[in-house]
Each structure stands twice: as C-alpha cells, then as structure tokens.
Design a protein around this nucleic acid. Structure first.
Lengths: 194, 194
DNA sequence: TTGATTTCTTAATCTAGTTCAAGTTTTTTA
DNA sequence: TAAAAAACTTGAACTAGATTAAGAAATCAA
C-alpha cells in the first residue's frame, strides 16, 4: 500500500470520503522518509507542519533548564504529532520532535488546515474525534502519573506498548516515565528477580 | 444575562450561529444550580452528562486504591467538564465531579451530541477547537509536572489561577499539584519568609 | 574489525517530598 | 454562639527516587 492509501484507509475509520475528497486531501500531503535521529522540529522554531506516522517511531520532547530531556509522547504508526500550540499560534515551539528509528511520515502543513476544513467540512469531524481521543489519553496519563509509583507506571507501559519496549532504549522509556535511567534499571532488576 | 445568553455568547467566540441554531442548541440544555459539595458524577457510574460552568467552580478527581484523592482539573466559568471516556463509551467513569462552591451549570447530555452534530455541523468545528485547546493545556501540564519542582508548580499555579487560589482550600491545591497538604504548607511558609 | 561512543548496570550517598503525630486556627452545624 | 469538624501548621522520622561515579555491555563509525 502507498502512504496515500494508508492514510486514506486510516481516515475511513472515522469519516467516509468520496474519491474527490480523498484526492483533495492527499493533494495537501507530502510523504517523507525520515532517517533515525533526524530532527523534524526543534524547540524554539515555529512549527509549520503536522506529521502522521506511516511507519517507524517519533518522539516529542522538551529540554528543561537543566538540560534534561523529557519525552512527552512517542508516536508510532497511525499517530499524529506536532507542536499544536506553536502550529496554531505560529509562536516558538516548546517541543522538539525527532525520529527514534527510520520512519515514514505524511506531512500536513498547518497553513493548509483552514482550506481543508472549508473544502471538506468532514475534517472538522475527523479532528474533533481525533482530539477527543487524545484528551482521553492525556487524562489517563495525568491520572497514572498521580496515582502510580514508578514501578507501576513501568509495568503499565510494558503492557500498553509491548512493541515500543523493544523498539526504543531504556533511557527513553525512563524519560517518558519521568524517572532516571538508573532507577529504571533497578526496577527492571527487581522485577526480573521476582 | 440568562445562562442561555451566557453560553451563546461564549460560543460566539468560536462559531457564528443564527437565531434558529442558537435556539436548537439551547433547547438541548438544562440549567442547574449546584450547591457546594454536590456530586455531579461518582467514579463507577456511567457519565451521561457534560457540564458547562456558568459560574462557580467544579473539581474533577479520582480516588486511588489507597483512598487518596487526586484532582485532575478545576473547572471555573466557561469551562466544560465530564468524564469524556465514560460518556463516549458508556462505561463506568474513572473520575468523580463535584462542586467546590455554589455553582451554576448548563447540562448537555452525551446522547444529544450526534443529533447536535447532524443538525448544526458547526458544532463539529466548535468542539474541534475546544478539544484542540484542551490538548494544548494538557501538554503544558504534563510538561510542567515533568520539569518543575513542587515549589515551582505552586508558583505557576498562583500566577495562572490567582482567583482559584482564593476560592479553593490549600488541601485541594495540594491535590492538584500532586503533593501533600503538609508539604504545600511548608512551601508557603518558605515563600512567605523570603 | 576495532576503537570510540553510547547505553546499561550497580552501589554508595543524598534529597525532595511523604508520613505520622500533635497542636492551632478556621469553618460548619446545630 | 458553642461545640464539633475540617483545614492548616510544625516538626521529627522516613522513603522513593535522584545523583554521582565507575565498570560492563552493546552499538556505531571508519
């Protein structure tokens, strides 16, 4: 399947588009192959693009004032990512985005969004549903960060994303869980000897 | 202004509705006066209603397995709240909602949503924008919980919500910041003597 | 393929924030 | 308006997780 076909199939879970609408949409997109380590967005830049992952894995992260990286989100196949606030307001991004493995992404520029909504209002519905689901995930993450210990969060992570566990380094998982790599190592050791 | 007028005025920031559309929308709503302490949703129930705060303040929180409360969100005037996942899937709610002070809310039932979207598609746009903004806030909260110390989070909170600081108890602010009331008390003492 | 770099592990020491407990102030209720 | 309940404060003891450091294992680059 081509990337165009992949994203259209993905959309069909949420909205039904006719051929003309599909074509209009895919006409706004560009496919990009992204090598491992490539930066798609740097903190401080203005975010002009939204990324839809066809395959591979991206990370969205910030670097705090002590130089520590904090991974806010991993984005695997069929996930969208960008710095939404920066993209909407055209102000400098708080987040950086890069590829953790070789990836294939579709690019949808923010500047095309109002045109898309005007031409195919079904995309208002699509993004309404997409964002609705994203909010549910964010609530869950906030809840789990408040209720669970580091070990519990790690176990949830391995259950929820068994594939990610293989794909990305422990250092990155630790960053996502908001603990140090050293402490994650101890947690894993403890779990293994149980 | 009546509650109907208030919510219509609020909507006009995002979408332009004619009289007929306004009327259709307000016809789906009910106004409710909520006394301090009233439970609008209990963890475990199925969430059937969405609340829009006209005035007052609600809290959305969970109770963990140790019986500790964690406040996920405060909702003041012009904020929406509900347990979105429960409402969308009609499964038991993870969150509870109650009123921290006497409040006035508009109620929009989940079961009316598809009808609303069908009759007035502009509401797809409205909720798309609403959810978009909510995601921006969630990202910011996640980032701050990862990057900042308890004291820094408290200072941000007081800057961002100076009014809430007056309105709700320190116990609740501590819960929102994910620290104990004792530790918040110490932070405040430290700040005061500086 | 080897040397360099990065990642992971282990252990000692440290600290931000928790827990427990007791006293004080404020708010609620009858 | 008095008494009960809830919220806030303070301090001592504790702990989950951080920091530092050094070695081992894995990965990468030439």
């Amino acid at each position: 399947m081509t990337p165009d076909e992949r994203i259209v199939q993905y959309l069909s879970r949420y909205i039904k588009l006719d051929k003309k609408e599909q074509h209009f949409f895919t006409g706004l997109l560009e496919n990009q192959e992204v090598k491992k380590g490539t930066h798609l967005l740097q903190q401080g830049e203005i975010c002009r693009l939204q990324y839809f992952v066809i395959e591979g894995c991206l990370r969205t992260y910030t670097v705090d004032e002590h130089g520590l990286e904090h991974i806010i989100q991993f984005s695997q196949a069929n996930w969208w990512t960008s710095d939404l606030y920066s993209g909407l307001t055209q102000t400098p991004a708080e987040h950086s985005i890069d590829a953790l493995v070789h990836s294939s992404v579709m690019i949808l520029p923010f500047e095309k969004m109002e045109w898309l909504y005007a031409e195919v209002p079904k995309f208002e519905r699509f993004f309404r549903i997409l964002y609705q689901n994203a909010i549910v995930s964010h609530f869950r993450r906030t809840r789990e960060s408040m209720e669970l210990t580091a070990e519990e969060r790690y176990l949830r992570f391995t259950e929820r994303y068994p594939d990610l566990q293989q794909l990305v380094s422990q250092k990155h998982i630790a960053s996502y869980l908001n603990i140090t790599p050293e402490f994650l190592s101890k947690i894993r050791n403890k779990i293994a000897h149980r």
